[in-house]
């Protein structure tokens, strides 16, 4: 255990700093680049975008290493922490390149090298950008509506017994049905496919959020409400100052739960009815049998959904700051 000897100051980047690992990680990606340059291809691929990608990666690692080494201890911890992981990434890139386009062990059309995916993405750049934006807009509108409905219903159901008594049994039955089951109907009933898609995504989002919100509201200590009554709070103020902040940790759990469902529903609904979007793009790739397009869309989704996830996580950290203990 080399780490046990080292004093680690950073809880998040606990691996600590090591010049050796950092240099190794840069070398690993350099090896991947050299391999791609030297080993002859068995398939006809334009490796340009892939090599540019590797170069950017190398310069990024070098940059982070130098900034960490000379200027910022925060960056130092960060680059040190991920150095070993980056080595594995360099090796992985190298191996997939050899197995696919170089030796053809994993053959076309089902297996595609990362270089080919990047080449395809550059070729389809405009279409992909359009699709991504269209998917993002659709998702954002639907998710916000779904989450809002979930939070509002959750608060009403969690706080007001009568409302809960009369509506929760029905809402539960509706909420438990997979949104996809409504698909054939919505595609016919709604005037255009966009509205149908919004409806389906909202349908997949509201229930997990509502369900978790109810638990959050009901889990708030009764003392908080009693204190509020002796402090002159109105019902409106109780909702604003106790119910919502008190339920927020649970609301975020609901949001994270429904996040995955919303992405699934986004892609599925776009596959069925849409003329734009990443789901449509995948469906189109299927019909032409071009699997590098499929992989391209998957790469974009991985990036897009990760960014959305990270953003919501950041918002959660900010909003729930009060839960952190004194350091």
């Amino acid at each position: 255990m080399e780490n046990s000897k080292r004093v680690i100051f950073n809880k998040k980047y606990w691996k600590g700093w090591s010049s050796g690992w950092n240099i190794f990680s840069i070398l690993a990606v350099v090896v991947a680049l050299v391999e791609n340059l030297l080993v002859a291809s068995s398939e006809s691929v334009d490796n340009g975008p892939y090599r540019i990608f590797l170069l950017i990666f190398i310069f990024y690692l070098l940059f982070v290493y130098l900034v960490g080494y000379f200027f910022s201890s925060r960056v130092k911890f960060y680059s040190g922490h991920f150095a070993q992981l980056n080595i594995s990434l360099g090796i992985l890139l190298c191996v997939q390149d050899l197995l696919t386009e170089k030796f053809g062990t994993l053959a076309l059309p089902y297996f595609v090298s990362f270089a080919q995916i990047l080449e395809q993405m550059r070729y389809d750049a405009l279409l992909l950008l359009e699709s991504t934006i269209s998917s993002l807009v659709l998702w954002l509108i639907s998710f916000v509506i779904g989450a809002l409905i979930g939070v509002v219903l959750g608060i009403l159901l969690g706080r007001y017994r009568q409302f809960n008594y009369w509506s929760f049994p029905y809402l539960k039955v509706i909420g438990i049905i997979p949104a996809a089951a409504w698909m054939p109907l919505t595609m016919v009933v709604f005037p255009n496919s966009f509205l149908a898609e919004v409806f389906l995504i909202v349908l997949s989002v509201w229930f997990p959020v509502a369900f978790m919100t109810i638990g959050g509201v009901q889990g708030i200590l009764p003392t908080y409400f009693e204190a509020a009554y002796t402090l002159g709070f109105s019902e409106h103020r109780i909702i604003q100052k106790i119910v919502i902040p008190g339920a927020l940790p649970n609301i975020f759990i609901g949001i994270f739960t429904s996040l995955g469902l919303s992405f699934t529903m986004l892609v599925i609904s776009e596959m069925i009815g849409a003329k734009v979007g990443l789901g449509w793009y995948i469906n189109w790739a299927k019909s032409t049998g071009n699997y590098s397009q499929l992989y391209g869309a998957i790469v974009i989704m991985a990036l897009l959904f990760s960014i959305i996830f990270a953003l919501i996580n950041k918002i959660q950290e900010k909003v729930l700051r009060w839960r952190q203990m004194a350091s």
Binding site: L221, T223, Y224, E226, A227, T230, K241, I242, P245, G246, L248, W322, R323
Partner: peptide
Amino acid sequence: YVFQHGSLYPWE
């Protein structure tokens, strides 16, 4: 009314 403990709002 001052409660025995833990009546402050933790989010404020």
